[in-house]
């Protein structure tokens, strides 16, 4: 089951194990420059607010209601990252999580299907993967998730399928099988370490009928981030027990008219943030990284498409040289975020 708690999605699988829990929240962040260079990790500036779509049935499209799930506000060209926390008494309960945007898998670039695939691996493993900031375009490199209006031709979905049909973010989570967890737990207890220590140590025709407020995610600037190889046996995942959620993205400009609440303010630019001497991050782990996706590597970034169209899709895209880079190592505290105040 999935509950909406404190602007996050709380997945729990009480039918599998009482410790099988996963929290996902969607972090506001800087948009890194889309200038071809590789950047460190930007900070988390707090979670985007989440609402049940059912609570605003009169003000949203029939399509969103059919999908069910939740919604959050983003400004055009705003960036985000997904923050994952596994729970569990002492030893976090491993959960396999598949993430798509516009029903395009963010790790493989393949179109959405339920279920997990090992080759190529189409999911991330939490807690080994503490966060996901974008599309896995090369081994160790992602392109940042950047919100663009659905129908304008920038999103990964439109570049790959030629259609602006789904938008939003899709998440499905599979817990580890109970017996497999219990076996690992015994071993971790004896050895004195757990997964938190071990692992953490693509333009076609564009439809014009998408609602004005409907946003999708597009590939932005390049960032150093590894997507870790699954360190467990594939048959240890409990594929019978999954929970999934459609996360819709509403343009922040209409969020107030839908919900009556103000969206968060716009985040600072990378330049302002860097100039203020605030921290960027690098994450180190012993985990093996998987290769990038050939499909996703073929995507054009927002700036590249803008140049082709003669648009300026990203205001303030000046390059920056982060000076204050904080190194994070494996073994984050439960719920720890890359914190940056502004």
């Amino acid at each position: 089951m999935i509950e909406l708690k404190n602007d996050g999605l709380q997945f729990s699988f009480p039918e599998v194990h009482k410790e099988a829990r996963l929290d996902i929240d969607f972090q506001r962040t800087l948009r890194i420059p889309d200038d071809g260079s590789n950047h460190p990790l930007p900070p988390g500036l707090g979670s985007f607010p989440l609402q049940h779509v059912d609570d605003f049935a009169d003000d949203i499209s029939e399509r969103w209601l059919t999908h069910g799930g939740v919604m959050l506000p983003m400004y055009q060209s705003e960036a985000m990252w997904l923050n994952f926390s596994a729970r569990g008494n002492g030893f976090p309960y491993p959960v396999a999580v598949k993430i798509a945007t516009g029903k395009i898998n963010a790790v493989t670039g393949e179109e959405w299907e339920n279920g997990l695939h090992a080759d190529p691996q189409d999911y991330v493993v939490v807690p080994e993967q503490p966060w996901l900031d974008g599309y896995c375009v090369e081994k160790g490199i992602i392109r940042q998730f950047v919100a663009m209006p659905l129908g304008a031709g920038y999103t990964a979905e439109e570049q790959i399928t030629g259609e602006a049909e789904h938008g939003g973010i899709q998440v499905i989570a599979y817990p580890m099988r109970r017996e497999a967890y219990e076996e690992h737990r015994k071993k971790w207890k004896v050895e004195g370490w757990g997964p938190n220590v071990m692992g953490q140590m693509c333009l076609g025709s564009i439809q014009e009928d998408a609602a004005m407020y409907d946003m999708g995610l597009a590939p932005g600037g390049r960032m150093r981030q590894e997507i870790y190889d699954d360190p467990y046996e594939f048959n240890e995942w409990d594929t019978e027990n999954a929970s999934r959620c459609f996360v819709h993205i509403a343009n922040s400009m209409v969020w107030r008219s839908i919900t009556g609440k103000n969206p968060p303010t716009t985040p600072p630019t990378s330049r302002e943030y860097t100039k203020a001497g605030l921290p960027w991050f690098e994450y180190y782990s012993d985990g093996e990284a998987i290769d990038g996706s050939g499909i996703l590597a073929g995507l054009k970034s927002v700036i590249q498409i803008g140049q082709k169209k003669g648009d300026v899709p990203l205001p303030e895209n000046e390059s920056v040289t982060p000076g204050n880079v904080v190194q994070l190592r494996a073994g984050l505290r439960p719920g720890q975020v890359r914190e940056g105040q502004f």
């Binding site: 089951m1 999935i2 509950e3 909406l4 999605l9 009480p14 049940h52 059912d54 209601l65 059919t66 999908h67 069910g68 799930g69 939740v70 029903k103 789904h166 899709q170 929970s243 999934r244 959620c245 459609f246």
Partner: peptide, 13 residues
Amino acid sequence: VLKLVREVRDGDW
């Protein structure tokens, strides 16, 4: 009691 907890509704997609 858990049946009363509000779950995020999954629809058709």
